[in-house]
Design a protein around this nucleic acid. Structure first.
Lengths: 109, 109
DNA sequence: CAACTCTACTTCATCTGTCGTAGTAAAATG
DNA sequence: CATTTTACTACGACAGATGAAGTAGAGTTG
């Protein structure tokens, strides 16, 4: 398990990644993150839902209610064009970040 | 310039990296970070000095005064064995982190 | 020689994002 | 029918980053 401070700047990006494939909701994304990272990263519920709020306030995602007449009502989110642009930007930034941090890492110690 | 939230979890590691080579002090490390990253990352003074405090409180570095009889007195820092162990740990963690974040990045967009 | 820049910090207050704790509520499972 | 899983929401605490401002000596420039 890696510390979350490392990931801090990329939680929003991780969420947007899953929304690229289509609308989704909190619990599903939470499971997907765990699965895709093979359990190496688990986003806390509170972190996830507060990220949704931030992303929506920034206009990067939009929420709507599912039409399930059964079960607990889900809040679905879809990515907006601004969200897609933000995601792409973050991907580029990541390449630079990786390169920069690598300069301060000694891998063979 | 990359956002510092990304780096957040690695500021301490970056500082320790320079102390591997020998004792140093704030201003010098600040310059070194800028140079080594080719200006892509500039650690703010307040971030740097508060990191020194944190690192010292954790026993990862030790401070001492330089014997310069001229100029403004410098506070030097040297890495401790615990600091070295911490640095090595962070380097290993970085490899995992990189791998995990990469899974949520689409590089060709 | 006065003004400015560079070196080398320190203090303080604020903000953002993460996370612990707790609670609600419906459906599925054994 | 009790427990687990799904699907959230609210609240408060905390750590680390940062902006603004100040201190102070040394070197540089007009």
């Amino acid at each position: 398990m890696i510390s979350s401070d490392v990931i801090r700047g990329y939680n929003d990006t991780i969420i947007l990644f899953f929304l690229l494939e289509g609308a989704s909701y909190g619990y599903e994304i939470s499971k997907n993150i765990k699965e895709k990272s093979e359990g190496k990263y688990i986003m806390k519920e509170t972190t996830l839902y507060s990220a949704f709020n931030r992303l929506e306030n920034n206009g990067y995602i939009e929420s709507f209610y599912g039409d399930e007449t059964f079960g607990k009502r889900r809040t679905y989110y879809r990515i907006t064009p601004a969200g897609l642009a933000y995601y792409k930007e973050k991907c580029k930034e990541w390449e630079i970040t990786k390169d920069v941090i690598n300069r301060f890492i000694r891998s063979g110690m």
